[in-house]
Nucleic acid binder design. Structure first.
Lengths: 171, 171
DNA sequence: TTCCCATCCGGAGAACCTCTCCGTATCGTA
DNA sequence: TACGATACGGAGAGGTTCTCCGGATGGGAA
């Protein structure tokens, strides 16, 4: 890839983060292109859809989330490790006004690898904690309440209350 | 209100239900107007925004939901009554591709009366069941998993599994 | 039954969106 | 330094939301 192409792609991604963070699903691709200082044709050549943009951003962030989960495998309290990590998953899902949750709960095959990585860590943490719940269902619930808490951003403690509600059956 | 105005309003509401059911948030107000057989000016005079349309539809449906809840107050098993009703709330929230959940979890003051009515029934059912959870949080969780289950409509049993997960701490 | 007017209708147009196409620009290799 | 493959970008097509105002009409009064 040419250097100007690489630079433009990075700028589009950064602008997309900012626009999605500010406007969630209402973010405009034209505005993202303007913010990145490129033409719409350039944006579309790098990312054929808003979804492709979101996938690229989410993929960057899932790496850190998975690393965090792996570190928690060494936690002395398996139940606590799982709770800490599920909270990290929830916080991650609230990003970009809940768009991360929306994408992770959808069926985009482009996120299959992200799902696999998250599922693998969730599986290990759950097993250590003796939790028998289906990990996909557990992750779905956590993402769902993350998304819900983004619907009323004026209540900062809400995410934790909702998480407490949905994880009380855990050890 | 004139009879032609009343008729057009009803047709717009019916068309809106159909379009929101088929397309969720991607439903177009122009298409709704076309489907109702009115001009955009007519649609906008009756409903100044998509949100106003949704509020009108949701308000119609909440009446039935609340009636259902009141009937359940006579249920011999208070825990079971609460579960049955929370499931009804979830099913209601999945309507129009999860748009009902999206709206009920938002901050639109126009839905304040709906919230009050739902909260009142939830409060009574919870009290009978000995549940101390904050009813707003409980309702939020239920709407959240309803929305999540709409993200993957190909898995019909998912809503029930997610509901079982989030309500297991109840009596 | 007719008339009149307040209420209602509807569609052209403005401004924005998504997305594409193709003439122009430029990076990088020879 | 030159050239060509790669990349750019913006005009334009077709869609959306939303408004405005000239025309239509429901219904009440005479």
């Amino acid at each position: 890839m040419r250097s100007d192409a690489r630079q433009n792609r990075d700028r589009v991604l950064a602008a997309a983060r900012d626009e999605f963070t500010a406007h969630g699903a209402a973010a405009s691709l034209n505005k993202i292109a303007q913010r990145a200082g490129v033409g719409p044709g350039t944006l579309y050549r790098h990312f054929p859809s808003a979804q492709a943009l979101l996938v690229a951003i989410i993929t960057e962030d899932v790496a850190a989330l998975v690393d965090h989960g792996r570190e928690l495998l060494g936690h002395p309290s398996p139940g606590e490790a799982l709770r800490i990590w599920l909270r990290a998953v929830a916080v991650h899902a609230t990003a970009m006004r809940g768009l991360v949750a929306t994408e992770l709960l959808g069926a985009d095959p482009a996120l299959a690898e992200c799902h696999d990585r998250i599922r693998a860590v969730a599986g290990e943490l759950s097993e250590r904690a003796g939790v028998r719940d289906d990990v996909d269902d557990l992750l779905a619930v956590v993402s769902a309440v993350a998304w819900a808490s983004e619907r009323l951003p004026g209540d900062p403690g809400r995410l934790d209350r909702l998480l407490t509600l949905v994880t009380r059956g855990l050890p």
